[in-house]
């Protein structure tokens, strides 16, 4: 057992967990934050993306114990009284069908917009397509997902 203390969605969260506990399991099973999904178990599908210290991370690939003191944001932590602009955009553009990839898409979308803004680069359609290569969706054909991220970029 390893003691883990981190900040999740702005709140202190701690637990004694086996050393091999993945962040995705810690979030889902110990904190009951089940919006972070596990799709492929092997860090390829992107359904489990969360933010760790402000950066997108595939939570099925990182050990909870390695994140002592880290600040983690999950999809549940985005809305602050009202929906985050990225959440609004995915709803308004019908950027989802089965919804399983959606939390990861939203977390990756926010991360790419933040990075491009910080670097002063324009987030073009091509850039969004390229940035989404670590997030797969089997339902939508990505058309409305790309549109959603583009829309959100304009309002973030």
């Amino acid at each position: 057992m390893t003691s883990v203390t981190m900040t999740v969605n702005g709140k202190a969260a701690s637990g004694d967990v086996p050393g091999e506990t993945l962040l995705s399991d810690f979030l889902r099973e110990h904190l009951r934050l089940t919006g972070t999904h596990v799709g492929c178990d092997t860090s390829q599908c992107g359904a489990c993306v969360v933010h760790v210290d402000g950066k997108a991370v595939k939570s099925c690939t990182v050990l909870a114990a390695s994140l002592d003191g880290a600040e983690v944001t999950t999809v549940e932590g985005l809305a602050n009284g009202e929906l985050h602009p990225m959440q609004v955009a995915f709803n308004e553009n019908h950027g989802l069908q089965c919804g399983f990839c959606t939390p990861g898409m939203i977390m990756s979308g926010i991360d790419m917009i933040n990075r491009y803004k910080a670097e002063g680069k324009e987030l073009t359609d091509d850039a969004i397509r390229h940035e989404l290569e670590g997030n797969i969706c089997r339902c939508t054909g990505y058309h409305n997902i790309v549109r959603s991220i583009k829309d959100a970029a304009a309002s973030m």
């Binding site: 969605n9 934050l33 549940e76 932590g77």
Partner: peptide
């Protein structure tokens, strides 16, 4: 097995609010 932080409430739940 784990405690849920100082608040005793799962992080994030307070924001699980229905949209208007």
């Amino acid at each position: 097995m784990s405690d849920l932080g100082t608040s005793g409430e799962p992080a994030g739940t307070e924001q699980r609010r229905d949209p208007p």
